[in-house]
Design a protein around this nucleic acid. Structure first.
Lengths: 115, 115
DNA sequence: TTCTATATATAGATGATCTATATAAGGAGG
DNA sequence: CCTCCTTATATAGATCATCTATATATAGAA
């Protein structure tokens, strides 16, 4: 078993964003709402967290973006998954499973003395 | 469903340490080895992470410590769970379950268009 | 004697997330 | 009409967990 990427502990946000985009292209504000909805209000992602994250993911070619004007004048910036982003999502999802399995193993391991 | 403590994403280390001590009193170095063992090498906690964490947990009355001299001259600092630490462990374990359930719900949610 | 493992400790860097703030346009209520 | 709330994106600065690097000291192995 290889050691897991430490940033997963804190970095599950990226994985969740990519997962949302696996379904449809979305714009930032919509992602915040969707995550909140699909997680039963557990994830209340802040705009100040999301937008810089989207920019950095686009820079890394995980995401591509395009603008779309809706209802008269409002402009939204839609994001879509790239092939690279799709691959990254697969990897992170696997790591997440390894990580949670390990935590649950420790948590469920009961109290056996090892003195 | 109340929003979860954000530090859980990154803060599962504290929970795991407390969980170890639920079984027996342990000294720092031993915790690193035990975590590595019980998690199949997924958690390779660094000394530079653990010791400051133990100090801060002791300051917050989550842990109590005592020294013990073993094999001639070697001195080890053992830590034990306090009542407060035990309570905190229960709370964090619950939050962990809520958090992982939410992530898994998003991950398993499939790709249904919400355009 | 030198290297590795045991054992604890602290300083400084990194990185993810948050708060606060800014801009701008639309709709609702007074 | 004016003000407030929601939608929508954006950036600067703060916070906090963890990591790397380093230090000290002892024991045992090469």
């Amino acid at each position: 078993m290889t050691p897991i990427d430490k940033s997963l502990l804190t970095g599950s946000t990226t994985m969740l964003i990519l997962k949302l985009l696996e379904g449809t292209d979305m714009y930032g504000y919509q992602m915040i709402e969707e995550l909140n909805l699909r997680s039963n209000n557990v994830f209340q992602l802040k705009a100040g967290t999301l937008y810089p994250l989207l920019h950095s993911l686009e820079q890394k070619d995980m995401l591509a973006s395009y603008e779309k004007t809706v209802e008269q004048a409002r402009v939204r910036k839609y994001y879509s998954l790239t092939a690279k982003g799709r691959k990254y999502l697969r990897e992170k999802t696997e790591e997440w499973q390894v990580y949670t399995a390990a935590v649950n193993h420790v948590l469920g391991g009961g109290s056996f003395a090892t003195t």
